[in-house]
């Protein structure tokens, strides 16, 4: 189903259909994440990917035309670039340890300590929250700052346009 959604996404020229398909794809992705036991990520994917970004895309569509313009030239160079990047990534993933290999470095380094000592040290049964907020508190602080910066950037960009229009009129 996800493959069908992606192929339809790439082929469709109607941007409204693209937005709806992207939302459906996000929901499918969320179910995959639930199947992988990553409920936190699935919730984020469903709310951001399927909910808020769909609304924002529709808002953007309202501001412009809903049909994609025909490309001016054949996109051969971008296509070659995308294929070679994909090939590089696949080549890189060959060097990763096998999926769910218990001897993989990620499972032998700090993960056992988090899993064994985390509940006693933090008193928080959800290890994901303990790692995010306590052990990796600096990273999450940076993350929050990124969200803050993104918000401020959007505010500054869109607000100034409005003021300019006020001056013109």
């Amino acid at each position: 189903m996800m493959v069908v959604a992606v192929v339809a996404l790439a082929r469709s020229r109607n941007l409204f259909a693209v937005v709806v398909l992207a939302g459906a794809y996000s929901f499918l992705m969320a179910t995959v994440l639930v199947a992988l036991d990553a409920v936190d990520v699935a919730m984020t994917e469903a709310a951001v990917g399927a909910g808020i970004s769909t609304v924002l895309f529709l808002g953007a569509l309202y501001l412009c035309r809903s049909e994609e313009a025909k490309p001016a030239h054949r996109p051969l160079i971008p296509f070659a670039l995308a294929v070679s990047t994909g090939a590089l990534l696949v080549y890189g993933s060959l060097g990763l340890p096998d999926f769910s290999d218990p001897q993989a470095p990620i499972h032998t380094h700090v993960a056992p300590r988090y899993l064994n000592d985390g509940p006693q040290e933090t008193g928080v049964p959800n290890v994901v929250t303990a790692v995010l907020a306590s052990y990796r508190g600096f990273d999450t602080f940076g993350e929050t700052t990124v969200v803050f910066t993104a918000g401020v950037g959007v505010i500054v960009l869109l607000r100034r346009r409005r003021k300019d229009k006020n001056k013109e009129s």
């Binding site: 309202y62 999450t140 993350e143 869109l158």
Partner: peptide, 25 residues
Amino acid sequence: WVEAGVGITVSSVMLRIFYLFADRA
């Protein structure tokens, strides 16, 4: 408290971006 901070910032940034887009429309 840290999670509360994250929640406050994330929800308000999302809403503010939505407001700005809807306002432009």
